[in-house]
Design a protein around this nucleic acid. Structure first.
Lengths: 210, 210
DNA sequence: GAGCAAATAGGCCTCCCGACCTATGGTCTT
DNA sequence: AAGACCATAGGTCGGGAGGCCTATTTGCTC
């Protein structure tokens, strides 16, 4: 789970981005700040893996945060006015990456994963490649333990197919096999019954996202 | 359920806002567009209750959308550069409301609810009052039918307390009463068992949002 | 080709879940 | 005072859920 902090003076953007990123299985937004001052004040109390900041902010701007001489987590600059000059200035100030607000959410998630993994996003030539390599969410270890078939079953379960006969029908297997898979899922997810399994599946992002 | 469409050229914002609003129980984002042309092209195929648009967009701007002479759903203008002049121009062009991007997400949700209810958001003097009146999400009718006690139980259920004895313990009632409440919940939510009830509770936003 | 994990299937058994009904005290509204 | 709704509690009962074991086939890895 990657812990992220966001600083942006447009609260609608910060709130939404927080919600958006929280709906990504392996990313959690720990805090949002509405200017650089708040950010520098509140950062010490949190364990932040990756920082996402806007450049244009009142009080203390993104540039000033980067140049404050403080040790910061890998910092991704996300900005509206995406010019080459701003990009260069941000990277020179110590930003680990630079994305325009016109980028899709998936790219932001990928960039956060890349920074968390210690990758370098300052080279615009390799940016697209690096992002592509981090498209896939890194699931919780308990989810990783699940087999493909178990995941299929769990997905159906989380969609509301809860009875053994129905699951058997939709997976074209016997009820016995359904129960076997379920037992295995319960053990791996450390839950007691199918209701808890469904809840965990949703929480961990195994269920399909529409 | 209020159906919303978003138009904003900053995809990160549009994607995030979409996620953010979808996590509000009574609002669903049906589509996002990245400029006015896309919006005008795709709007006819959808039943949109409220439109959320940015003013600054390539191709066809927010102003041009409003002035296109088309019948539009109640339209909320959300903008970065919130000046009085822009506000006046937007409202004169037919916008039903105007919010800066520095507003919190709750206010946007409230504004959408207000517009959907036919309220007028053009008067800045009464804006705050109207928003306050629409703070609370309008739950699905099935959720409205639930009693307070049933909701308590459902909340516990959605948090993973699935066994009858555990539920009885935490609610300080007998197992019999738990089963009675559950039966009533099943009927009102039109589900068959506690797994489906938990899933619906999460989907409908009954479970606490942390 | 030996070994291992996964997907499939079955048996058996206990206990809990969900369905259906009755009942009582409390709090409203009419 | 009557009626309606809610929270509470109990009984019964059949079927399904979950625990525990065994077993076969397939496919991958060493």
């Amino acid at each position: 789970m990657i812990s992220v902090a966001i600083a942006d003076d447009h609260q609608l953007f910060a709130d939404s981005l927080s919600m958006g990123l929280n709906s990504v299985p392996d990313i959690r937004v720990a805090a949002t700040f509405k200017d650089g001052a708040e950010l520098l004040g509140g950062l010490d109390d949190l364990e932040i893996d990756v920082l996402v900041i806007d450049l244009e902010m009142p009080n203390i701007s993104g540039f000033e945060v980067l140049n404050a001489g403080r040790p910061l987590p890998p910092t991704l600059v996300v900005t509206m006015h995406s010019t080459e000059m701003q990009r260069r200035r941000a990277l020179e100030s110590g930003a680990a990456g630079f994305l325009p607000k016109s980028a899709p959410l998936n790219d932001l998630a990928a960039a956060i994963r890349a920074l968390n993994a210690g990758e370098d996003l300052t080279e615009s030539t390799t940016l697209r490649d690096v992002l592509r390599q981090h498209q896939e969410p890194v699931y919780d270890s308990r989810v990783q333990a699940l087999t493909a078939r178990e995941r299929e079953l769990l997905q159906l379960l989380a969609e509301g197919v809860t009875s053994t006969p129905d699951l058997a029908d939709q997976l074209f297997i016997s009820e016995k096999t359904v129960k076997n898979h379920l037992a295995s899922i319960f053990e791996k997810l450390e839950v007691a019954d199918r209701a808890q399994a469904a809840i965990e599946a949703i929480r961990l992002g195994v269920a399909s996202r529409r």
